[in-house]
Design a binder for these strands. Structure first.
Lengths: 219, 219
DNA sequence: ACAAAAATTTAGATATGTCTAAAAATTAAT
DNA sequence: ATTAATTTTTAGACATATCTAAATTTTTGT
């Protein structure tokens, strides 16, 4: 079995690789886990010994098949727990992260299988992130951020990039939720900020920064 | 905040005091936690420094008010999680212990409050053990084991002393469940084993050892 | 291509929790 | 009441995971 800490390192590496390059640097991991590069070096050595990562000194790391399996399992558990908290225990989507960070390390095959069943096998979590299946299969997200679209495009909100409570609360306040339809009404050339119509009703302004952090698909 | 290990020590001390004497010995704790007396001594020093236990070398330990509060909170979480597993996730009563041992250490006030609400504020767990309230108030169990009663007494099963899967599965197999009515039909003098009628239907034999481990109240 | 800057690793410490073996204190027995 | 047995504690190690500071490697800039 893997320690709490090892699991967190594998998850961090997976997430850093997922969106960006194919290799992760020591510093990037240190920043993500709020620890120091020296500590990361130590742990990388340990994970490499266990064949969970591909690691050569100074050359960055990637996950082995074995390491990726562990990471995906943790992510599966994290996202199912988030779903459970929101769907069954009335948590808001900006409140679930820290608790799910703890729950994801509970070791019990049956527990997570039953949670999955109890939730009726959800495909995405409350932030629109896909939930890997028992085998670690992850559905590819085909959504892009709003900033990739053009005037008059009609889109459906499917997810968020930033998961911070501050950002999620801003979306709540602005009436932007998963599943909402938005239409790009105006694009300000100067700062790339946008005017959008939400659910054919309310017109609001969002900055380029916000637009980059909202994931959508064409309607 | 207290570490996972500290919480387990406090819970163990509480449980050892609960039924037996007013002071616990180092060896008793070591046996309960499956560790060595030397390790216990080290930890007791630490817990005493934090004012969670009353401890004088060689004289055994008891919990301070502060330590008892922590212990009761862990027990509350453990029992609520057990209830959740049985009621909502179709776990059997002999399957919940190990998972609840992990879940009880999750740190989130809101989480446990919501689980409590979701279960509609249960008073006892699947084994009939009382669930402490948010303030740590524990309802006193007035039940005794079957072995304390006499011929022709009619009783209701309210709990179990032994929580081992082996014992619980034996009860399932014998048709003995919480809430069942039993009548003492015969007491064998030689070995104190009993013949009992369950729910006015089935007559079964149970050993004195089993009788000691089933808690009941008079009907 | 070489020096300077940045990133990464190693060395040596610290903190937690565990262990074995030895020492000390308590309890039991004659 | 003194010895023997048992229990408990201390001393010294070990494993995990972390840190700071120093050393090393890689990357960048001219």
């Amino acid at each position: 079995m893997h320690s709490y800490t090892e699991e967190n390192y594998l998850k961090a590496i997976f997430k850093l690789i997922e969106h960006d390059s194919d290799v992760v640097t020591t510093n990037a991991i240190a920043e993500k886990l709020k620890t120091k590069a020296a500590s990361v070096s130590d742990m990388l050595k340990k994970l490499a010994d266990k064949k969970l990562i591909n690691y050569q000194k100074y050359q960055g790391v990637s996950l082995t098949a074995k390491g990726e399996k562990v990471a995906l399992n943790i992510i599966r558990k994290h996202r199912l727990w988030e779903m459970f908290l929101v769907e069954k225990l009335d948590f808001k989507w900006d409140e679930v992260h820290d608790v799910a960070e703890q729950l994801e390390h509970i070791k019990s095959e049956k527990l997570i299988a039953q949670i999955d069943k109890f939730l009726n096998y959800p495909k995405v979590d409350p932030h629109g992130d896909p939930i890997p299946d028992e085998k670690g299969k992850l559905q590819i997200q085909k959504s892009k951020s709003i900033s990739n679209f053009k005037l008059n495009d009609v889109l459906i909100i499917t997810g968020v990039v930033d998961h911070s409570p501050a950002f999620l609360r801003y979306l709540d306040k602005s009436g932007l939720a998963l599943g909402n339809e938005i239409k790009i009404k105006e694009i300000i050339e100067f700062d790339k900020s946008l005017q959008i119509v939400v659910n054919k009703k309310n017109t609001i302004f969002i900055s380029f920064e916000v637009a980059k952090n909202i994931l959508v698909i064409s309607k």
